[in-house]
Nucleic acid binder design. Sequence first.
DNA 1: GATTTATGAATGAAGG
DNA 2: CCTTCATTCATAAATC
Lengths: 219, 219
Amino acid sequence: MVNAMEWQKQQQQNPNQQRNVIAGEIMYVKVMTDEQLETLRKQIAVYATICEKLIEMHKTLSAQQDLAGIRLGSMYCDPLMASSGHKITSRQRWTPTSVQLQILERIFDQGTGTPSKEKIKEITAELSKHGQISETNVYNWFQNRRARSKRKQQNVAASNNTNTNTESEVETEVDSKDKKTKPEEFQSQQSLANVAAQNVCFHNPDLPYLNPESNKSDS
Amino acid sequence: MVNAMEWQKQQQQNPNQQRNVIAGEIMYVKVMTDEQLETLRKQIAVYATICEKLIEMHKTLSAQQDLAGIRLGSMYCDPLMASSGHKITSRQRWTPTSVQLQILERIFDQGTGTPSKEKIKEITAELSKHGQISETNVYNWFQNRRARSKRKQQNVAASNNTNTNTESEVETEVDSKDKKTKPEEFQSQQSLANVAAQNVCFHNPDLPYLNPESNKSDS
DNA sequence: GATTTATGAATGAAGG
DNA sequence: CCTTCATTCATAAATC
């Protein structure tokens, strides 16, 4: 069985990356075998199970005794969220919380290009519920997000024709470290990103989707 | 509901599965974009962090009160878990060959401060002859080189100049390293730890944007 | 082989 | 918008 670490290595040394044509467009993608996918899936399932058990345990334990002092410790009080006021020793740069990020990404993916002044206000209001944030932050975020998304596409496109005619042994398909490409059409069509993101949402106390049993049904 | 299996299902439904020819053989494989892969990587990292935190918490709690009721038991050493760890999450990164480095340094020393996009392309092309490289790599290299060069100068100037308390700001980078050695300490910096902390806040009522239902934008 | 250091990359913000 | 900068994060390389 190919374990995930080895798979990762393979990705590095001998990238499973190749050019594919989907819906008439050329894009660079990672390729996994069923086996690799299965391995990954199992590993995620293991994490999910462990997390569930641990959370459950924690609940039990902390219910039995009210250790107000310890109680998840610093986990509850993210300094970023808790302390909005003092900037003495901390940084002045805003950092989105994961919740905020997910919301932002979702909005971005909806393709409503330029978030108008109106929208910005709205979004900011919504995000405020999940942490310190200002309209400027939101504005900047969209600005940056779009710009970088764009640049990445160009990069990928460029790497397509760069060494078409050169002599070097560098193969076209092997671009060492092209990060995430962002073809929006695909993004919305099959939002693994969103699915994966939700995998990690522990906000729901019941954690229905973390049930290990539901994962055992295949192959 | 949205678990690993679900994701797998979606993979099957969607045309992300296609026929590829590798090494002369036809095989069916799963296809992911770089972005999806990166997202997955992050998600797994979040799981890893959550697990660590929870285990840590558990230790603290059960150390204070020895109720031998639940205990992690065998959960700690799941074979699958053990074999994989969360090392899956490592990410590759470009490293310049010595030849490339020499060339880069030489160009940098020529003082042509801003390597325009034009230049970048040129340089990249040149460096490609000596090893795997992309324009982004070159761009980043110059960015970093300049920034760090600058910082060093400032450091020297500042230390010449006096204040015993300036160090806190100037030595940011050094400090961050120190913090890393003490994972127990809470840090006011954004990291997966915080991401995990956010996600693990199960006291948060509901999150409309994260509702799986609202994710059904795709057919 | 565990820590520490060096450095490639990511990203929020400012400038134009 | 696009470019640039400053800061921070994460990891390869170096060190002990």
